[in-house]
Amino acid sequence: MSILTLRSEPPERIDLLNITPLALSSLSHGDAAKLPVGTSRRGLTLGDVFAIKLDGSDSLVIEGGSSRLDRVGAALSEGTMRVEGDVGQRLGEGMAGGHLTVTGSAGPFAATGATGGTITIEGNAGDHAGGAVYAAKAGLDGATLIINGSAGDGLGDRMRRGIILVQKAGARAGQRMIAGTIVAGAVGDEPGYGMRRGTIVAGSHGALLPTFAETGTPDLVFLRLLARSLGPLGYKNLELLNGPMRRYSGDLATIGKGELFTPVG
């Protein structure tokens, strides 16, 4: 297991794009230390910011997090990465495979554009987790995002594929969703604004949009299959998928093929 130990709070935002177990496995300690990670004219390198211990394995631990560590695990395609602490924006951006875990909280746009693998945030996620960054066609795009704490507003904004599991989300979860699945213990106001397709399952919700229409309480095999498929992920709110659910269809402002499930009663 390779280990990067944060020397101190970075003086600027640090870009860890391309710092993955695979990328480090072929580098000597000296070469790894020279990798540029700073974002200002200080020209900070990996060795300036972290104490480095490499063993060539497919596992990397970052000890000591910071909300200034951006794009952690962004290029991960295989292996595991674990951050013991917080991270900044775009955690796992465009990640294609492997397992990425953050024990603290993540900044905005976690898992944006991630096409594969599993991203777990044990703390909270900022706004637009699983959401699209500026001008991007899609947010989460096939990966699995698990948030054991709360997510901010715009969870899954423009997500196209994949699954998001979260305990609690802010306003407009599933905004502009293209497809995919969100399962949340609770979501805030106006879930699914502008969603085209996709599924949101919420234990409770804030104000609903006038463009979501109730379509009854169907007994769908899909929800039980979803619960079964999510079982191995250790999600805490799976029981909500087993009870009777009320279904809303929306957003009728668009093609309206999305759906929101919420427990009856």
Partner: peptide, 19 residues
């Protein structure tokens, strides 16, 4: 009491014939 963006979406649902 709706925000402008919600009202625009509501109007769009009528324009599309979904409401």
């Amino acid at each position: 009491n709706a925000s402008l963006d919600v009202a625009i979406g509501h109007l769009r649902a009528f324009v599309r014939g979904n409401l």
